[in-house]
Design a binder for these strands. Structure first.
Length: 750
DNA sequence: GACCTGCTGCGGCGTG
């Protein structure tokens, strides 16, 4: 090919602005032209400043950032000072390995070193990178934290000449403890290197709110962040939402047939349809929970066997070993044999599994943003649309189903998720959090990095320049006091007024488990001979001789070693499903509002199958029969059901408000059941709430159990834990609005 | 009614 692919093309100017070795590398890739997102991002990033690059999966975001950044580095010349030039942070080790593979050729062409740095990289390789820091470093937040904490004096030499920081999968960090830690680390680096600011480039496929993402990238100065949104729309979308009637009774037990009887968690008709749709192709199937992953993988594998076919269904979730998961990922990506990975959220993020034909999902799922991530896994090959099928179980259309069950809120939620996605809606991150657990961690980390500090300096670094900007000076003083209390002794004040690490803090930060800000449960390793299958939660472990389904296969437990926390297994014929923990998902207000719109509307989406359409029509009839179009209060026997059409956090807050007034309340997923009381009493309580809440936020928080949810919560005083509850788990100011919505659901906005 | 993510330094041993 001697033609000039970039002649008279809109991307020509962008291409021409890149450094010569970068252009040369692009030529060798034989790209027809730069992608839209690259053409847009190149001038913005060359200009300097903070930038967010948002585009669908596989649209070339990585190159959109690195082509101009490398151009910037090369412009500095050969005699540039030592230190890394570009710092790239990703949430997964697997992603760092992928990106290393992807960037190797480009960096080599440009004569710049490329280092990967995470827990699986040899200390030798890290040592080499540390002694001659230069070029690009790909690292996890935890490894970065370890470097700051253990080698505080080297920070300036390693990072003071950074041209930019790249944060991949930005959405995986925003609004979470790990995101707070990353922001804090970046601020700590800027301050340690006496740099006013180092350019930050955020990459993401799905962002609910660009404004909030910008404010995450640069706390307090989000308005200065440039946004680049790729317009590459993909190849279209074929989607279907399928309804299934609940299985009425478990299959009859006829003694001998029991060993092959499928666990009842599997819906037989769904399993049959999944087998018909997925067999013979390469697909992803999101089952919703680890237990369902195991159950459906087992059922589908059995169907392959019954049909005399080699198995093509494989389990993939967070309790399976790295080896088990990598086998599935490799088979998806590189093996021509048809493969369906049955997964939890493990295959949502950017690990490279190539293109898949169909994405299937059991149940409505928990968020629109996750639905978008999943869809992005399909339809990447030119000319093929993304294919998505959702399978939802609901009560059938037979007589005798109670009107409230006829609302079929799981199916309605699933359709609402799809509708929200089609409208371009997406949950914004929760920006209300105080994240005091992580602030405890960052206070210790900062002390380890820089030795002793004045409290005012710690406050300026972490809460004024850093991300903990909702924490007042007074609250931080309370937090320091709690950390220094005789009970915890994490820190102490020296005679000259400096904060120092105390014995408790030394002990807490001594091991490698200190670097991560999230907690991990203690598990037993499951071994088949020398082969590590994965890990099971401790509460499941019972007895030798027991059988389990794990990694989609059936095993008998041979020995359990409690000291070593190891379970040895052998293959067997029949087995039961393991149980995993889990405490429910939160649904956002915007999804529940779509549900209300759907139930009160008349439009029937074209993507419903016959059963789903009939179920939606019946749900709408029930909605009107119950009078829910007029008010969200209905009498059911001696109880009153309340439908405020609000997300999990606000519904939970309303439930606490009723509890505070001595009602007996049971919380459903989308409604409250006020037990044994007259509708007039509930009516009066709600009307009173509209005018003025009876209780302060502090009084309501006192009623809520305060489990230690985050890793360092145990070091917070009760007073601080209550503040966390008020900020993160309740929405007290919304009570008048929510109460009003129970009377005129459609008329209220806010 | 749920899911996911991460890891240093050092002592002790064997080998070339």
């Amino acid at each position: 090919m001697t033609s000039q692919p970039f002649a008279s093309n809109p991307s020509t100017t962008a291409f021409d602005s890149l450094a010569e070795p970068v252009r040369k590398w692009i030529w060798t890739q034989k790209w027809a032209q730069l992608r839209d997102v690259q053409t847009q991002a190149i001038p913005k990033i060359l200009e300097g400043g903070d930038v967010i690059v948002s585009a669908r999966t596989a649209a070339g975001k990585t190159e959109a950032a690195f082509l101009p950044l490398i151009t910037r580095v090369l412009a500095r010349g050969d005699d540039r000072p030592t230190g890394f030039d570009i710092l790239y942070v990703a949430p997964l080790k697997a992603l760092i390995n992928d990106q290393h593979r992807r960037l190797e050729g480009l960096l080599e062409e440009c004569g710049l070193p490329l280092h990967k740095w995470h827990g699986d990289v040899s200390s030798d390789a890290k040592q080499r990178a540390r002694t001659r820091p230069s070029g690009v470093i790909l690292i996890t937040p935890e490894s970065l934290e370890a470097t700051l904490v253990r080698r505080g004096r080297e920070v300036e030499g390693l990072f003071s000449n950074l041209s930019a920081v790249v944060i991949d999968e930005l959405h995986a960090f925003v609004g979470r403890e790990r995101g707070m830690q990353l922001q804090s680390i970046l601020t700590r680096i800027e301050i340690a290197c006496r740099r006013d600011r180092i350019d930050r480039i955020g990459l993401s496929a799905t962002l609910g709110d660009m404004g909030m993402a910008a404010d995450f990238l640069r706390p307090g100065r989000g308005q200065n962040v440039s946004l680049v949104e790729g317009s590459d729309a993909g190849n279209g979308l074929k989607l279907q939402v399928r309804g299934y009637a609940k299985q009425l009774a478990p299959p009859p037990e006829d003694g001998e047939a029991a060993p092959s009887a499928r666990p009842s968690i599997v819906h037989d008709a769904i399993a049959d349809d999944l087998f018909a749709y997925l067999r013979g192709h390469t697909n992803l199937m999101f089952a919703g929970s680890r237990q369902k992953v195991e159950a459906y993988t087992d059922a589908l594998r059995e169907k392959c066997e019954a049909n005399g076919l080699p198995n093509e269904f494989f389990a993939h979730h967070g309790n399976l070993s790295k080896g088990e998961r990598e086998d599935v990922e490799l088979r998806l990506r590189d093996d021509p044999r048809p493969t369906t990975a049955v997964a939890t959220t493990t295959l949502e993020l950017g690990i490279d599994v190539g293109d898949v034909e169909t994405v299937a999902q059991i149940g409505p799922g928990f968020s629109v943003s996750s639905l978008r991530q999943r869809l992005g896994r399909s339809g990447r090959r030119a000319g093929t649309p993304a294919v998505f099928r959702m399978f939802v179980v609901e009560p059938g259309l037979h007589a005798g189903v109670h009107p409230t069950e006829r609302l079929r809120l799981d199916l309605v939620q699933g359709i609402a998720m799809v509708e929200a996605m089609l409208k371009g809606l997406c949950e914004p991150p929760d920006s209300a959090g105080l994240h005091l657990s992580t602030l405890v961690h960052q206070t210790l980390a900062l002390l380890l990095q820089s030795g002793s500090l004045r409290p005012g300096v710690a406050y300026r670094v972490l809460c004024e320049a850093g991300p903990f900007q909702t924490v007042s000076r007074d609250m931080y003083a309370l937090l320091l006091r709690s950390m220094a209390s005789s009970e915890h002794q994490l820190i102490e004040m020296s005679s000259d007024g400096n904060l120092m690490l105390a014995a408790g803090g030394e002990a807490l930060s001594a091991g490698h488990e200190f670097y991560a800000v999230f907690e991990t449960p203690v598990d037993y390793r499951v071994l088949h001979g020398a082969h590590n299958l994965g890990a099971l939660p401790m509460d499941h472990v019972v007895a030798e001789g027991q059988t389990i389904i794990f990694a989609g296969r059936r095993w008998r437990v041979m020995t359990v070693d409690d000291k070593a926390r190891v379970i040895l297994v052998q293959p067997t014929k029949a087995a039961l499903l393991p149980t995993f923990g889990g405490n429910g998902g939160a649904i956002h207000d915007l999804v529940v509002e779509q549900m209300r719109l759907l139930l009160s509307g008349t439009n029937v989406p074209v993507y419903l199958n016959g059963t789903a359409r009939l179920m939606l029509e019946d749900a709408r009839a029930a909605f009107l029969e119950l009078g829910l179009d007029r008010r969200g209060l209905i009498q059911v026997g001696r109880d009153v059901y309340v439908y405020p059409w609000a997300g999990s956090k606000r519904l939970g807050t309303l439930s606490v408000a009723f509890l505070a007034q001595k009602f007996v309340v049971a919380a459903g997923h989308h409604h409250l059941e006020i037990e044994n009381c007259a509708p007039e009493a509930v009516d009066a309580a709600l009307r009173a709430l509209i005018v003025a809440p009876f209780h302060t936020a502090e009084e309501l928080a006192a009623l809520v159990a305060k489990p230690e949810m985050a890793k360092f919560d145990s070091f917070l005083s009760l007073e601080l834990l209550n503040q966390v509850t008020i900020a993160e788990r309740l929405d007290v100011p919304s009570l008048p609005y929510i109460a009003q919505r129970c009377f005129t659901p459609a008329a209220v906005t806010g």
